[in-house]
Computed example of a mutant assay.
Amino acid sequence: MENEIKIDWTVPRENKNPKTKQPYKRGRNWTIVVYLDSAPSNWESIIKQEPVAISPLHDKDITEDGERKNPHYHVILSYKGNKSFEQIDEIARLLHAPIPQRVNSLTGAVRYLTHMDNPEKYQYESFDIRAYGGFDVDSALSLSTGDKRQMLREMIDFIKDNEIIHLVDFTNYCLSDNAPAGWFEILTERNTLFLKEYIKSNWQKYKSGEEMK
């Protein structure tokens, strides 16, 4: 098409988180989305030299409007030392990919490769994940005890800050795209009773406050 916009992939891009509009700090873990209709044919060979995990082909994802998304791969890079946005963007541009994003939870990112914690989305097969450069998928897939405790603290803070008084509302949030990766697993694994009682106490406190007015 004559009006098709051509991107110069040799030009470095601005370091800016699209959500916060702030620059990314250096980090060990990053993610890139690779689209089939723009990636070079040898894109996987380019990335193989890095410590990387590649998702199955996401060709059954659906938008909120019910339309099929462009087929793509989710790529996770995990290094022993911190890398800058500029270093990762250089790799992303070689793959003709959108700007990379820093990963806060490596476990959550790896689990998202197959939508493990998003039952409302199409479930891809874990055995289709490919790893290179010493990336240990099995280790990354397992939430450590410390990760679980930290995640539970964050869930409690969310319930308190948002004055959630019904378990169904919190469950629906955990199932949504807005919830951090892993929350649904933490809720349903062994903490449902505890969170239910915490929310119930939140409701009782809220009710008492209303009756005193």
Rank of each mutant, 00 (worst) to 15 (best):
P12W: 05
P12C: 00
E14P: 03
E14G: 02
E14R: 11
N15C: 08
N15Q: 13
N15G: 11
N15I: 12
K16A: 03
P18K: 00
K19F: 06
K19N: 07
T20S: 05
T20W: 01
K21G: 08
K21F: 01
K21I: 04
Q22L: 13
Q22A: 04
Q22D: 09
Q22M: 12
Q22E: 10
P23S: 02
P23R: 03
P23T: 02
P23Y: 06
P23D: 03
Y24N: 02
Y24M: 02
Y24H: 05
Y24P: 00
K25R: 12
K25G: 13
K25C: 09
K25F: 10
K25Q: 14
R26A: 15
R26E: 15
G27Q: 10
R28P: 04
R28T: 07
N29S: 12
N29D: 13
W30S: 00
T31C: 08
I32D: 05
V34I: 03
V34P: 02
Y35M: 04
Y35F: 15
Y35H: 09
Y35I: 08
Y35C: 02
Y35L: 09
L36Q: 06
L36V: 12
L36A: 11
D37F: 08
D37G: 02
S38I: 07
S38M: 12
S38L: 04
S38G: 07
P40H: 13
P40L: 12
P40K: 11
P40D: 15
S41G: 08
N42K: 05
N42R: 07
W43A: 08
W43N: 06
W43I: 06
W43M: 03
E44Q: 15
E44W: 08
S45L: 15
S45M: 12
S45F: 09
I46Q: 10
I47Q: 14
I47C: 13
I47W: 13
K48R: 14
Q49C: 11
Q49T: 10
E50C: 10
E50G: 09
E50Q: 15
E50A: 11
E50M: 12
P51A: 07
V52C: 10
V52S: 11
A53M: 06
A53Y: 12
A53I: 14
I54K: 01
S55R: 02
S55I: 03
P56Y: 02
P56I: 04
L57K: 11
L57T: 00
L57V: 01
H58S: 10
H58D: 08
H58E: 04
D59A: 10
K60N: 13
K60I: 07
K60L: 11
D61T: 02
T63S: 14
T63H: 06
E64Q: 13
G66S: 09
E67A: 07
E67F: 06
K69G: 11
K69A: 12
K69M: 13
N70W: 06
P71I: 03
Y73G: 04
H74C: 03
H74F: 00
H74Q: 03
